[in-house]
Simulated scan of single mutants.
Amino acid sequence: MATRTFKEALKHRRSYYAINGNSPISDDDIKDILDFAITHVPSAFNSQSTRLVLLLKEHHHKFWNIVKEKLQKMLPEDRFIATKEKIEQSFDSGYGTILFFEDENVVKKLQENFPPYEAKFPVWSEQTSAMHQLAIWTMLEDSGLGASLQHYNPLIDEDIHRQWNIPENWQLIAQMPFGTPLKESEEKPKLPVSETVKTFK
């Protein structure tokens, strides 16, 4: 695969809901993507509040089983059948899942140290997580993997923390299942930039 420019990589990123349990790159290469993002993606006040958990093999499947078990208790049977099918075909069918967390202790410490910005630090923390999500998502796709971003928190938080002994101060933000794409993902419509960008000079 020819190396893409940063702009090309961003343009090519898509949500993939048809993925299988294979990977064109090694587990070490996947881990390197996470390590690179956690090292180089910026954060407000250099907080470095993002935390990542990489689930592969049986851990990946265990995660989505937890999601299904939780939803089965909450949804009517007819709705759960469709949800179960989506999870099994679009998420659990993949090679792995990345869990994105934010360390609440870091956020609270910043709130204590900089009272004028107290209300903003949780917002900036979410923005920090979003930057990590985009960076990892783009690098995964540039490596031949397809991913999507899911949000089953806070329904699953307690079970996830208990299953993998996650520190209580790590707040779950999002989940990113990934695997080898089975088909191309359609490009979603975009608003014209004339409506979304203003320039003054």
Rank of each mutant, 00 (worst) to 15 (best):
N65Y: 11
Q89R: 15
K57H: 14
F200C: 01
Q127D: 01
F63S: 02
I98Q: 10
I38Y: 00
F80N: 03
S125I: 10
S148G: 09
A82N: 12
E58F: 02
P189R: 11
G144P: 00
A119V: 04
K31A: 15
Q72Y: 12
K70Q: 03
E187L: 05
V106S: 01
S90G: 10
Y16A: 01
H59P: 01
P154H: 08
K7M: 13
S143C: 13
L52N: 09
F45H: 05
S185P: 07
S125R: 13
K84C: 02
F91R: 09
S129R: 03
Q175I: 05
W137S: 14
I166T: 04
I33E: 04
S15V: 11
P24D: 03
Q175V: 07
L52C: 08
S26L: 09
P76C: 10
E104P: 00
R51P: 09
F91S: 10
E118T: 12
S194T: 15
N46D: 11
W124M: 13
H40F: 12
E77M: 10
D157I: 09
L54S: 06
Y117Q: 13
H60M: 12
S185Y: 12
I87G: 10
P116C: 15
A119Y: 06
V123G: 04
K108N: 14
N20W: 03
L110N: 10
E58D: 13
I38G: 00
Y117V: 06
Q163I: 06
N105T: 12
I81A: 15
I156A: 05
K201M: 08
S143M: 05
Q127R: 10
A9W: 09
G144Y: 04
P76A: 06
G179Q: 05
I173M: 11
I30V: 14
L182F: 03
A130R: 07
P42M: 05
M1L: 07
G96C: 13
K57I: 01
A9L: 12
V41R: 02
P122A: 02
H161M: 14
Q127E: 13
I136W: 04
L140W: 05
D27V: 08
G21T: 05
H40S: 06
L34W: 00
K198A: 11
E85A: 14
D157Y: 02
P192G: 11
A18I: 01
I136L: 07
H59R: 13
K7P: 00
I156R: 03
K7S: 14
A37H: 05
G146L: 01
M139I: 02
V193K: 07
Q150G: 13
V193T: 02
I30H: 04
E112L: 06
I19D: 05
T138M: 02
V67M: 10
G179I: 03
V107H: 10
Q133Y: 03
I19M: 09
T83F: 14
S15L: 07
E186C: 05
K68G: 03
E112I: 07
K183A: 07
E8C: 15
S49L: 02
F178K: 04
I66N: 02
L75A: 11
A174D: 11
G94Y: 10
F80L: 03
V123N: 06
S125K: 14
F121Q: 06
S26Q: 06
S23N: 10
N46P: 06
H59L: 06
E88S: 15
Q163P: 00
I98F: 11
D142P: 03
S143G: 08
G94C: 10
M74L: 14
Q171K: 08
T5G: 14
T138V: 09
